[in-house]
Amino acid sequence: MKLIDLSSVKDIDVHVGSYLDELCDSLEFDYVSYATTDPVSGDVRGYANYPVEWVQHYTKQEFHCIDPTLYRSALSIAPVDWSRFDHDDKFRKVFRDASAFGITERGITVPIRGPYGECGLLSVTRDCTDDTWEKLKAHVMGNLQIAAVHMHDNVMKSGVLAKTMYRPALSQREIEILQWAAVGKSQQDIGDILSISHRTVEVHLRSGREKLGALTTSQAVGRAIGLGLIHPG
């Protein structure tokens, strides 16, 4: 299986590199990387802002075939702290070299399972104390989940096969709520109008946003109008 650098792929709907770089900065991590295995070809497609020498070494050594942060994390439904991995031969082989390039063993990988059984993996690392690490994790985990699904869905959508299969399937409730958002109603208002709790409004909004590959409600409204799912207010 091949290792493909996503930043060299032209037709991706998101500026993969800059998105991940910004994420890395704003969430205070040292490095960030994303990888997904193509369910058909088995190729690993990825992007990382690691030092270029490490990326070259990693690629040359074909570490993507033995890297536990990839093949082990894909087995979990929750983000996997790298401290959870057994320190077996594969782990030592990757991380002994990593430390020579100044990459720490302190990291976490967020797995996102997609509809075709594929898995996207967003990994972040930071060289810091146990205490700082635990606090940082608790603080940013929600944002990491959002970023991971955003990355994964956009990368999947860029595939030709996926393009035809990835029509957003929004429920009536999700559409209805986006329609009220399009006419300028707040979450609280929408809850009152539809006689549902604001939490219900929120859970449907979040789901609708993700199906539309949008990060904000405004963006989701825009896309839903573009797709003819709702009227422009």
Partner: peptide, 14 residues
């Protein structure tokens, strides 16, 4: 259960 509606989908919903 969903009356033919598509399911909710979110990384923050299990």
């Amino acid at each position: 259960i969903l009356d033919g509606e598509p399911p909710l989908r979110s990384a923050q919903l299990w």
